[in-house]
Amino acid sequence: MNQTIDFQVVDNIIEELGCKPSAIIGILQGIQEHYRYLPKEVFPYLAKRLGISEARIYSVATFYENFSLEPKGKFVIKICDGTACHVRKSIPILEKLREELGLSENKKTTDDLGFTVETVSCLGACGLAPVLTVNDKVYPAMTVDKVSELLKNLREEM
């Protein structure tokens, strides 16, 4: 996981949000937006710039579910498992996705960094249930059968 970090990108984010400890969440969000995860290498740099310990930044980064310390796949698939989607059978869709991609609850990203599969509690699109998103594009009224086709299309895009 030795990613070369463009510290200019990090610097720009820090400059925009202010070089102060209280801006840490925003800064981490900015970095995650750029890299799709929080690379380990930015932690010492941030600690030095903001004057807080690496352990504390790690504390913040692990507290929020939204931050990822693992690199995410090119396609991040989020399956909604809110009440409406759940009763309309979102779990079989999740299981099908995991089966086809060789993933599990603990292993969320494929080794080739192609796909990440995770669940969300509600996407706020209950009328379209069961719903999933691929990199923020919404796929409504999903079924187990549609999963294979979706993955086939995505693989072609890669």
């Binding site: 380990k40 932690f43 310990s53 352990a55 504390r56 790690y58 504390s59 507290f63």
Partner: peptide, 16 residues
Amino acid sequence: IDFAHRGSKMTISTSF
């Protein structure tokens, strides 16, 4: 050291 993770998974941890 600092707190890491949350809820039942919370621990005292060094960075990473």
